[in-house]
Design a protein around this nucleic acid. Structure first.
Lengths: 339, 339
DNA sequence: ACATCACTCTGAGACGTTTCAAAGCACTGT
DNA sequence: ACAGTGCTTTGAAACGTCTCAGAGTGATGT
């Protein structure tokens, strides 16, 4: 039943041509007479021939895949980015290998090693740490690396990011505009640059706009729903006078957890506590109190990153660029109900 | 700056051994004297040698990757399954190529073609259609295919599924137990077997338990949040007497959309309308009215499917099996508040 | 009749690895 | 001295593809 896959030579034999011709039919059909081409195609069909990509890669020196390393595949933010990447990659006939680092350097490293062995065309990565020798190693090997959701620190690498400081500023400014004076920033771990910058943006907004505004930090171990819930319980346990009137969450997962815990404790959103999230994942709008959130152009982020990568691999005159998109505050009920 | 990657021969030269020895150091280090081994490892380090996986694959005849084809990468259900698959695969040093078919046969086909060319070790797929010639083709080529979230129709293939009929039955039985007599099943498209079976299960529950229960169908174009919202608007527009007292949604995305639309229209959940979802994705529990939902062992599904695949590739005495897990109804506020 | 040209097709060689039969070597026992 | 043993290392062959220099063919012009 299972016979070994036929190779190009067997196709050539059946069609009565040379292997070179079969290869041409496959890769540059315009070089082959239509008569010959049809014969070869018939043979391919008959044998159910499928090109062996390993051999092809070996000969060509590079593969037709592209690596994408994300921090948390469960976060809809990253799946949306992945969609953008996939869209662009598939259009070029490339496959995407999605790797999940789970914010763990060791996992990230082992994924990068594997990708290097596979000689992927390039890697898109949201790195766990600021600078990684493994990334430099990939570049030395001629594998381009594009950082996404993180701005490159030097001009000799490509990156696509969204301005997190600006996003933080937008969120905090919105809350200050609405009269909030006691705001909590909910986020962590601070090893994640995104979180640090969103916080920084919020502080900047206070500095610029809010003479009388205090902004506390409630720090979480991970930016997930569970941590948001825990934080919500803590906030609910505070006496009403000490409670913040608004919470700016470092991402929507935290905000959703928070919303749930507060609602459960009978604290009304936004009347008692306003909430602003970050990322504007689909579930933010779908929450029972739709979340105000800072929207990032997620798919566009993925598309752009993939395009940069492709440009770097195909265009000899490629110039590295650091693209920064602007986020957009989407106001919904969780922060704008009457107070 | 970018010099071509060194190969095994250069490593051998630097270490003063033969290529065969270097290969042994890499693959069966126990065959090599520690003295030689260290010399080779030093050379590898010095040259920053990275094994070329294409060549390796070509020689070995198969790759170290595994394909996973899902219907909708944005659905947290599938990312959780993917996590399970990845966990198992990584433990074996395999990479996972995640492909998104978006419920589109053509996309699915082109992904499968690519995977076939890559000579992946195997494919895990939640197929768009009942039977696909391309799947048969993969099998003929010796590439094992495991169906997941779909029970195999014949005994000569592996599958891992969750009993959707039972899940539907549990959900409906729960609602009937709580005295609901006017229930709506919200789901679609009916081309998706999962959805048909969940509906079927609900009907079976009515047949067995609910003499006086009516169960209508409200059909959606896709099982996404937006469609749930649309359906919610429709339900909200009905006169209160014609409104169902409970809605069983074919998945949680629909349920979240529905919940949002109903809440927005001032309809209370669960007092006016109870909701039961399906999948128990993380956001179900995190909704402001936590959703009652039918939980599927998602990561376990992924793990088990990957394990079956590995067994099929490595164990000559492999026997195909059709695993069916039981779902579990998780009761939360959206269906169990006092009415 | 011959040179030239354009178009097809050919086939050897290379890509980098793994494998395996066989060679090399150092001991041991006779 | 030599056969036998067990361990380590060697090096050629093979995996399936693509490329490219050159061979073959027929038509055209002189």
């Amino acid at each position: 039943m299972v016979r070994p896959a036929p190779n190009i030579r067997q196709v050539a034999e059946l069609a009565g041509v040379s292997v070179g011709t079969v290869s041409n039919v496959l890769n540059r059909p315009e070089l082959v007479t239509s008569h010959t081409r049809e014969r070869v195609q018939a043979a391919i069909k008959e044998l159910k021939f499928v090109r062996n990509d390993s051999a092809r890669q070996l000969r060509l020196g590079r593969s037709r895949t592209l690596g994408l390393v994300v921090l948390d595949i469960s976060n809809p933010f990253f799946t949306d980015v992945a969609r953008g990447v996939e869209e662009t990659a598939n259009r070029e006939g490339l496959a995407v290998i999605v790797c999940n680092s789970d914010d763990d350097s060791a996992k990230e490293a082992s994924h990068l090693d594997l990708l290097a062995e596979m000689r992927v065309q390039g890697v898109l990565i949201n790195p766990v740490q600021e600078s990684d020798s493994r990334i430099a190693m990939l570049r030395e090997r001629g594998i381009p690396v594009v950082l996404f959701d993180r701005q490159a620190s030097s001009a000799d690498e490509c990156s696509v990011a969204v301005d997190d400081v600006l996003g933080g500023r937008q969120a905090a400014a919105h809350l200050i505009d609405h009269g909030h004076q006691k705001i909590t920033f909910l986020g962590g771990p601070y090893s994640l640059r995104q979180i640090r910058e969103r916080h920084e943006g919020a502080l900047a907004a206070v500095r610029d706009l809010g003479a009388d505004v205090s902004i506390d930090v409630l720090s979480t171990s991970a930016p997930h729903v569970g941590a948001g819930r825990t934080a919500g319980d803590e906030i609910a346990a505070l006496p009403a006078t000490e409670r913040p009137t608004a919470v700016f969450c470092a991402n929507d997962l935290l905000a959703l957890g928070l919303l749930q815990a507060l609602t459960h404790a009978g604290i009304r959103v936004p009347q008692d506590v306003a909430i602003v999230g970050y990322d504007d994942i689909e579930f933010a709008a779908a929450a029972a109190v739709p979340l105000t959130s800072v929207r990032q152009p997620r798919q566009k982020l993925g598309r752009t990153a993939a395009e940069q990568l492709l440009d770097e691999t195909t265009n000899p005159g490629h110039r590295h660029q650091q693209v920064v998109f602007e986020p957009e505050l989407i106001v919904r009920d969780s922060s704008s109900g009457t107070r």
